[in-house]
Write a protein that binds this DNA or RNA. Sequence first.
DNA 1: CCAATTTTGAAACGAACATTTCAGAAAAAT
DNA 2: ATTTTTCTGAAATGTTCGTTTCAAAATTGG
Lengths: 193, 193
Amino acid sequence: MARQEAFNREEVIGKAKEVFWSKGYNGTSMQDLVDAMDLNRSSIYNSFGSKMDLYRLALDQYRSESGQLFDEIEEKPKNGLEKIGLIFLYSLESIHKDSEDKGCMLINCSTEMGNQCNDLNGFLESNYQNVVKRFEELVVKGQQDGSIRSDEDPGSLANYITSTFHGFRITGLHTKDQKALKGIIQNVLKTIA
Amino acid sequence: MARQEAFNREEVIGKAKEVFWSKGYNGTSMQDLVDAMDLNRSSIYNSFGSKMDLYRLALDQYRSESGQLFDEIEEKPKNGLEKIGLIFLYSLESIHKDSEDKGCMLINCSTEMGNQCNDLNGFLESNYQNVVKRFEELVVKGQQDGSIRSDEDPGSLANYITSTFHGFRITGLHTKDQKALKGIIQNVLKTIA
DNA sequence: CCAATTTTGAAACGAACATTTCAGAAAAAT
DNA sequence: ATTTTTCTGAAATGTTCGTTTCAAAATTGG
């Protein structure tokens, strides 16, 4: 048969992801992608379809990587409250390393495209619900091991945590002060303990 | 002398604001603005300068309107904690009325343009600090009247409140469920009480 | 009513946009 | 080595972008 792709697919999607993450969908031009992915225009269109198709692939990769975070924490020998704290500490680390102030790609997508693109809305919604679900699982665990209070149902607490979690990421755009950010985390944990 | 502007300045900036708010800066075309403002292209350029100039005017108007919210609450006969609760309830109302899912224009600006446009960054930063300051004032008041705990300094609590406040606005993009949103507010207030 | 000045409308600007085209280079299978 | 298929590179597609131009219409003050 014939020739096959010379590039690593996940790798070049990763490069596209970085550009979309930093500049947003509308702020990213095809030329930006050509430069970043180090592929020819036609190769990109051939392999990935349209700019929007590529954006969705980039989002998928980002979500997949973010989801792994919860998986990693699941295995650690910690109680529910500590595990939720770890999620926030990972986020703190992301903020610390985010010298470009790119923020969270999924939040960026929500604010830029959520109300403009119906196709993306389904993706964003399922992702949001998934985050709530993952937090809820940790809350249930915490209520079982006694590290999280049981006078409020897990879903409600998970809503609160998810909300503060998103706020935390926005806050990270404006301050990188570790002490201030850790103070926020402590208050969140205090609320659910 | 000569002819004068036939349109109301704040009014047409308001119309531009709606478009930018909904579609973002990069997602808004000059044609969108011509249509929405009901002004000719050249009139817009004559009166407001560039697209970016107009965007900044729209942002200014939005910030000014948002700031009035704090002013209104200042006059009410409530304690510090209740006043902070009122801010969140106003936000809840905004979310409820936001059928288009436009969210908060300033957060949208932060996520879309904060890391791309140095000029806007100063504006965004001063605005963010101002929100923290306004919350801090309410915290101080709450600590004086006993409605807010005094074992943590006002600045630290204000950081927590601001962070959750922004998260609340993001959450509003994903759910309009009043009970769920009120539950989040209750947890925030519980944390600082 | 006239002169001064600005707004207005429509057309035009070059640049940048996303996407397509297509001939030739490259690699796999026979 | 030849055939087959795909990838690749560069150029070109038509569209839309933000902005400018300019003559005509409009409105003010004298």
